[in-house]
Design a binder for these strands. Structure first.
Lengths: 135, 135
DNA sequence: AAATTTGTAACATAATTTATTACAGTATGA
DNA sequence: TCATACTGTAATAAATTATGTTACAAATTT
C-alpha cells in the first residue's frame, strides 16, 4: 500500500495553478479531491514548509501558489510529501549472524538509492505548469 | 507504506544463489529473514509461478533455484511480487464535475507508467547473480 | 461583533500487512 | 511400514498504517 499524499498534493497544486490569483479554501479543494478538508490542510502544511504555497487565515482566506507553476517541479512536490521511492524492506531485523541477513538491507538501500535518483531526475524534468496544462 | 515482498523475495533468492545445490527449508530461510516460515512459503509460491524456483515436499524437502542466477533479473523478481511502482492515488473517486478531478487519475497514471518503465529497465539490467555477488 | 476560514490536536475507523495456528498431503529413510 | 520432517494452504488474529471525524482556538474580513 502506498499513501495518496503525492496524488493529493499534485491535485491541490493543479487546482491552484488553474486559479492563479484566488485563495482557494480547503473545502473547495476537498470537494474536487473528494477528501476531508482537514487532510487537505495537512498536505497544504507540507507544501508550505517548502514555500510552494502560501495561505491566509480568516474569512475569505485560503491557499494560493507562492511561486510560478513554471518554477515548481514534480520533484519538489514529491519531496514535500516526505515519501521515498523504495521497493520496501522486510519489517524485522534480519539475522545478523547470517552473511546474507547481515548485509541485505544495506544492499537493498544502495539499489533503491539508484532507482530513486533516476525517478527524481524524471520528476525534476516536469514542471507543475506542464502537468497542469494537460487538463 | 510499501510491503516487504520484494525484499523478502530477493532475500530468499540470494540465499538460494549462495547454496546452489541444496534444498533450503522455509524455516532456515525464515530464520535469516527473521520472518514467519509461512510467509516465506507464500513468497516462494509466487516465485514458483514464474518458474524461478522449484520446491520439493516431504522430508529433506525445500526450495532451490530453477534457473541460473545469471539468467534471472531483478525485474523478474519484482514482477513475481505483483507489485507496481506508483506514487499513489487518492483513495476516493475525485469529483467528476471538476475539470481537474475528472482527469487527475488518468494524468497520474500516465506519469506513473513512464516512471515504471524506467525503473523496470534498471531492474532488468541487474541479475540475481550480480546482486548476490555483493555479499 | 458576526461570519468564515486556517491550524492543529485528539481520537475513531478502515484497510493493509504481518503473524500465528492448524492440518492435510508428500517424500525420506530407519 | 511407520515416524519424521518437510511443503501448501486456509483461516484467523494482531499489528501497523492510512484515512476520516470532531472539536475548537486563532486569525481575518466585512
Amino acid at each position: 500500500m502506498i499513501s495518496g499524499k503525492f496524488a493529493i498534493s499534485i491535485h491541490i497544486l493543479t487546482l491552484l495553478a488553474k486559479f492563479p490569483d484566488e485563495y482557494l479554501s480547503s473545502e473547495f479543494i476537498a470537494s474536487s479531491i473528494n477528501l476531508n478538508p482537514v487532510l487537505v490542510r495537512k498536505e497544504i502544511a507540507n507544501l508550505k514548509k517548502n514555500q510552494i504555497v502560501m495561505s491566509k487565515e480568516g474569512k475569505n482566506g485560503g491557499t494560493k501558489l507562492n511561486i510560478s507553476p513554471s518554477k515548481v517541479t514534480l520533484k519538489q512536490i514529491f519531496e514535500s510529501t516526505f515519501e521515498e521511492i523504495s521497493l520496501g524492506f522486510s519489517k524485522n531485523e534480519p539475522n545478523p549472524k547470517c552473511p546474507v541477513g547481515k548485509e541485505i538491507n544495506q544492499n537493498l538501500s544502495a539499489l533503491y538509492t539508484t532507482l530513486n535518483d533516476s525517478v527524481m531526475k524524471q520528476l525534476e524534468a516536469t514542471t507543475l505548469e506542464e502537468f497542469a496544462n494537460k487538463f
